[in-house]
Computed example of a mutant assay.
Amino acid sequence: MSISKQELVERSQVILAHAWMVRTFIKHCDEVDDYPELMGITRAVFDASRALETRVDDPDSYLKMLRKKIGRLRKATDQFALDAPEASLHTNFEQAVISMKGCTQALEALLADVEE
């Protein structure tokens, strides 16, 4: 089933909303004082979200920017998966890693749908 580019944008925005909540959790957690490397994921999510939000009404431009930003988001997610357990083994951190991995994979899958 083929979906429109606008629908891909809308799905991407929902996924990024989930990533934004991980960003908010990490940005305000106490552990970030002792583990500033956790801020890498907050910056990557902020950068991608802000770059994309200005393009929601132009699907071609949005998807082009998502292609540009996805690599940095993937790299930040991979690093976050390494850094988070060092900061805390609490379930909140475990779930944040799972969530970011899921968000990144879902965005990559949407981009793959566009290219098919």
Rank of each mutant, 00 (worst) to 15 (best):
Ser2Trp: 04
Ser2Val: 06
Ser4Pro: 01
Ser4Leu: 11
Lys5Ser: 11
Gln6Phe: 08
Gln6Ile: 07
Gln6Gly: 07
Gln6Pro: 06
Glu7Asn: 05
Leu8His: 00
Leu8Pro: 01
Leu8Ala: 06
Val9Pro: 09
Val9Arg: 06
Arg11Phe: 07
Arg11Cys: 04
Arg11Ile: 11
Arg11His: 10
Ser12Trp: 00
Gln13Trp: 02
Gln13Thr: 09
Ile15Ala: 14
Ile15Gln: 06
Ile15Asp: 07
Ile15Glu: 08
His18Glu: 15
Ala19Glu: 12
Ala19Trp: 14
Trp20Gly: 09
Val22Ile: 12
Thr24Met: 11
Thr24Trp: 07
Phe25Pro: 15
Ile26Asp: 04
Ile26Glu: 01
Ile26Lys: 02
Lys27Glu: 10
Lys27Leu: 10
His28Asp: 12
His28Asn: 15
Asp30Leu: 13
Asp30Gln: 13
Glu31Lys: 13
Glu31Met: 07
Asp33Gln: 06
Asp33Trp: 04
Asp34Glu: 14
Tyr35Ala: 04
Pro36Glu: 00
Pro36Ile: 04
Pro36Ser: 08
Leu38Met: 01
Leu38Ser: 00
Met39Gly: 05
Met39Val: 03
Met39His: 04
Gly40Ala: 13
Gly40Asp: 13
Gly40Glu: 14
Ile41Val: 12
Phe46Glu: 02
Asp47Met: 02
Asp47Phe: 07
Asp47Lys: 03
Ala48Arg: 08
Ala48Met: 08
Ser49Pro: 03
Arg50Phe: 15
Arg50Lys: 08
Arg50Glu: 15
Arg50Asp: 12
Ala51Cys: 05
Leu52Tyr: 05
Leu52Val: 00
Leu52Gln: 00
Glu53Phe: 11
Val56Gln: 11
Asp57Leu: 00
Asp58Val: 00
Pro59Leu: 02
Lys64Thr: 02
Lys64Glu: 13
Met65Ser: 01
Met65Val: 13
Arg67Ser: 06
Lys68Ile: 08
Lys69Phe: 01
Ile70Asn: 02
Gly71Ser: 12
Arg72Gln: 09
Arg72Gly: 14
Leu73Lys: 05
Arg74Asp: 12
Lys75Arg: 10
Lys75Ser: 04
Thr77Ala: 10
Asp78Trp: 11
Gln79Trp: 05
Phe80Ala: 03
Ala81Leu: 01
Leu82Val: 12
Asp83Gln: 09
Asp83Cys: 10
Ala84Gln: 02
Ala84Tyr: 05
Pro85Trp: 07
Pro85Met: 09
Pro85Ser: 10
Glu86Met: 06
Glu86Leu: 06
Ala87Phe: 08
Ala87Leu: 07
Ser88Val: 15
Ser88Ala: 14
His90Lys: 14
Thr91Pro: 00
Asn92Gly: 08
Asn92Ser: 14
Phe93Arg: 10
Phe93Trp: 11
Glu94Phe: 05
Glu94Gly: 11
Val97Thr: 14
Val97Asp: 11
Val97Phe: 12
Ser99Gln: 13
Met100Asp: 14
Lys101Tyr: 05
Lys101Thr: 03
Lys101Pro: 05
Lys101Phe: 03
Gly102Leu: 06
Cys103Trp: 10
Gln105Cys: 15
Ala106Pro: 09
Ala106Glu: 13
Leu107Tyr: 00
Leu107Ser: 01
Leu107Thr: 00
Leu110Phe: 04
Leu110Cys: 07
Leu110Ser: 10
Leu110Ile: 12
Leu111Lys: 01
Asp113Gln: 14
Asp113Pro: 02
Asp113Cys: 10
Asp113Ile: 07
Val114Arg: 04
Glu115Lys: 11
Glu115Val: 07
